[in-house]
Design a protein around this nucleic acid. Sequence first.
DNA 1: CCATGTGCACTAGTATACAAGTAACGTCGG
DNA 2: CCGACGTTACTTGTATACTAGTGCACATGG
Lengths: 232, 232
Amino acid sequence: MERAVNRFTRSPIGGNTGERVYAILREAIVTAELEPGRQLSENELAELLGVSRTPLRGALARLREDRLVVIVPQLGTFVTMISRSAVEDAAFVREALECAAIRMATERITEAGLEELQVNLAAQERAEAEHDADSFDLLDEDLHRAICQQSGHEIAWALSRRANGHLDRVRRLSLPDNTYLSQMVTEHRSMVAAIAEGKPDQAEEELRRHLRTVLSSLDQIRSRHPEYFETE
Amino acid sequence: MERAVNRFTRSPIGGNTGERVYAILREAIVTAELEPGRQLSENELAELLGVSRTPLRGALARLREDRLVVIVPQLGTFVTMISRSAVEDAAFVREALECAAIRMATERITEAGLEELQVNLAAQERAEAEHDADSFDLLDEDLHRAICQQSGHEIAWALSRRANGHLDRVRRLSLPDNTYLSQMVTEHRSMVAAIAEGKPDQAEEELRRHLRTVLSSLDQIRSRHPEYFETE
DNA sequence: CCATGTGCACTAGTATACAAGTAACGTCGG
DNA sequence: CCGACGTTACTTGTATACTAGTGCACATGG
């Protein structure tokens, strides 16, 4: 324990089994392939994924921190029900972090950074024209990540994404709406424009409205899948 | 895996071994008892704490998410050096979350909630008069927690606290300054006053200034303990 | 004396075995 | 027929054993 090494040149983490399992399970929960309320058996999942319980449990522990599962000792692990408060908490966290980030990004963005945002925006417009929702999702994520990166605090994106599980689940449960894509692209365009013009207040306001559009579909989802929601 | 249970009445977590180990290690790192750069041996720590490697590794994994340790596969686990960017990231996250929370708290706080804040404040004044720094630390934490709670999003406090490791480490490394306590109490008083008067902008501004006082001691710490800092 | 190669002691990651506890189901008695 | 009780089959939590890989030190050859 005495050897104090300063060389942290190795990649911090890579394709750990636990990391991979976490990503798989999170995706399954967010898409409701593993539906809310479902009990998860560690043994069964381990066998299914071809790993042992040890890395699997690590993944479940992280999912618990994301509030996507509840682990009850000596009883079981369950996919959490969708609850209004959890969704609103996620929205609150994301709004707080990203609004602070877009403010700071507006003040310190570089030419190259702005260029990156606009390239992304152009790609989004192509994805919209081709009705390519999958490409759009990736571009959407990357735009928000890039904005946080330009703020100098990319950690905001990491935390926002992490806390975003409940919102993602609601979003993925929404039927792909034709008007949805064009509305999102329009809002993104307004955001980037505000950044380019150096108006932090306006950028923040655009982002805030943008993030709240997702929340607005909550009641719709609830009426379609009442069995996924917590009884209040 | 088929049994879908809705009764999540059990307490979510309790005194797990991993939880306990996490708290112990975090405290040791924050107080620099385990100094930056120090290599942590899983075997040694497990023996020292009287637990097996399994829960210990869970605790280390959480500390990695807090950026308090770096785990390099097949090489070792190390306490992270203090870096300006990590400290600034922590400050950014805390500022974003708590400022959003105090805003919302100001708008929706109840009489009882305000009463709670003022009781805390009075206790802080007593702790200041008695120069009881330990009591003050607890009251300080509780005040910030209570404000987040009154916002309706206590999760803001959980995340803020979690991201706050680097800031805590800097703060704990500071010598107990006589003027420090009275300044903090004064700032807290201003914050609560702004909440009571229903002025969200002012409350946010007071909190922002309050949080940045901690950051201001960074250079001082750095000159006193250069060996704890990352070479840039 | 220096350079090079090999072994060793250590690391984290993973798999497996064991312990403690819960709830549900079946059985036995009234 | 109904209720209480005990067994059983599951759960998560923890400890231990094993695997793969790293860097350092020491021995050996030039």
